[in-house]
């Protein structure tokens, strides 16, 4: 059961990482990056690194997401390539 949950989380992690790279809408990419951080934090906690997971949840999913959205206001919001 544990292995199943961890495998699912890893697949979700890889899927969100690929989605964050491939998405052309930058706001959606930022949201998917936050999802990536949150899944990673859950995995850290599952592996026993509670302190690292806590930091990842607060900084990666919270603060950095807000910064990216603030920076998006300086851009056109879409990737050209």
């Amino acid at each position: 059961m544990n292995l199943f949950i961890e495998t699912t989380m890893f697949l979700l992690l890889i899927a969100s990482a690929i989605a964050a790279i491939e998405l052309r809408d930058l706001l959606a990419a930022v949201v998917v990056t936050s999802v990536f951080s949150f899944v990673l934090a859950t995995l850290f906690v599952a592996f026993g690194a509670v302190d690292v997971g806590f930091t990842e949840a607060v900084v990666g999913a919270g603060v950095v997401g807000v910064y990216y959205i603030a920076m998006l206001l300086h851009t056109e919001g879409r990737a050209d390539d």
């Binding site: 806590f54 930091t55 919270g62």
Partner: peptide, 13 residues
């Protein structure tokens, strides 16, 4: 778990 950095980041959030 936690401490100054994590708590400060929560206060900033």
């Amino acid at each position: 778990p936690g401490g100054g950095f994590q708590g400060g980041a929560l206060l900033a959030a």
